[in-house]
């Protein structure tokens, strides 16, 4: 009897050990990695159906323009963070039957497409999109254009701040540019080295070729990024201001000041925020669609710039 009791105790102890250990792993590591954003936001980085053109419930800026295109419509594509802008452009200028959305994606015949930065740069080079709205291209994207013998034209149509983000409960509110580069080059590994708590820094990156990853590489100014994905520590990441504030709108995230300057609209406009980049309308120089330059001129007009500003960006002028 005593022996049986001991055996049962040992079995129970082993089971309990595994249960407690696995629950610990789940609560400390796994739960953090679970993405509870919507399926669309996870798959596309933006809720496509919330910013559709010609939809009365759409969140896009609606502006009734006298400038209209009825045929030979340039196909427009672009980055996630800029989708509300180019959807608003289409809404103002194109006829209503020019776009079709099947609930998840734009159909192949739609004049409005969405493939995000990497897809958009490939599309404009391959000729499946006429104009794409994106941040600066990566080296690989430029190399792809060169390999295909394509010359691209980059027309700045607005400005945006490149921002660094942490969880709202991180006590750090400001970093210098040197500190951020130090984090991503591996020089600083603990938040306590840069005014925070004694906990490791988990420096997060995006995929190569994404607009924000390209911007980050440019910010690093030749210094190599030497961080690896980790589940330990408190995280820091990067993105574009409007994507964080306007599209994701997650109250658990805060943007950091950089060199003491917060990335609000005023500081972006007067360029006191240190990392302000341009957003571009990109097209092939050999594109023969006469409506391409007309549409881009309109994007730079007062009406087009109104859409850019009211969508949350800073106009180019």
């Amino acid at each position: 009897m005593k022996k049986l009791r001991n055996q049962i105790f040992i079995i129970a102890a082993i089971v309990l050990t595994f249960v407690i250990f696995d629950l610990g792993i789940y609560n400390v590591f796994t739960k953090r990695c679970i993405n509870d954003y919507s399926e669309s936001l996870q798959a596309k980085s933006v809720e496509l159906d919330e910013y559709l053109p010609f939809d009365e419930n759409s969140k896009i800026v609606k502006l009734d323009s006298e400038f209209k295109l009825m045929e030979n419509l340039p196909v427009i594509d672009g980055a996630a963070a800029l989708y509300p802008v180019f959807s608003a452009f289409v809404n103002s200028v194109y006829p209503e039957n020019s776009c079709s959305f099947d609930g998840k994606n734009f159909t192949p015949e739609s004049a409005l497409q969405y493939t995000n930065t990497r897809g958009a740069y490939k599309s404009v080079v391959d000729g499946t999109a006429d104009i794409v709205l994106c941040a600066s291209p990566s080296e690989e994207q430029l190399a792809y254009a060169k390999e295909k013998g394509v010359d691209l034209e980059f027309v700045p149509i607005g400005c945006e701040a490149f921002v660094f983000i942490v969880n709202k409960e991180n006590p750090v509110d400001n970093l210098t540019a040197e500190q951020v580069r130090g984090i991503y080059s591996g020089k600083y590994k603990n938040w306590s080295e840069i005014g925070g708590e004694n906990t490791p820094i988990a420096a997060l990156q995006r995929n190569e070729g994404s607009g924000s990853q390209t911007a980050m590489l440019s910010f690093m100014n030749g210094e190599k990024i030497k961080v690896k994905n980790t589940v330990f520590g408190k995280a820091i990441g990067f993105s574009f201001r409007y994507y964080v504030e306007g599209i994701v709108e997650d109250g658990n995230i805060k943007m950091l000041s950089l060199n003491g300057v917060y990335p609000n609209a005023e500081n972006i406009r007067n360029k006191t925020y240190p990392i302000v980049g341009e957003i571009y309308a990109v097209y092939r120089k050999d594109n023969s669609n006469a409506n391409v330059p007309l549409l881009i001129d309109w994007m730079l007009s007062e009406e087009g710039q109104q859409i850019v500003e009211k969508s949350g960006y800073i106009g180019i002028k």
């Binding site: 679970i34 995006r206 990441g237 658990n252």
Partner: peptide, 22 residues
């Protein structure tokens, strides 16, 4: 579970991962 965690981590978006800290 460890493998699943690594898979989730690789595919986590920056914003979702930072948000989940709290």
């Amino acid at each position: 579970l460890a493998g699943y965690t690594v898979h989730l981590r690789k595919n986590a978006s920056i914003t979702a991962y930072i948000s989940s800290e709290s």
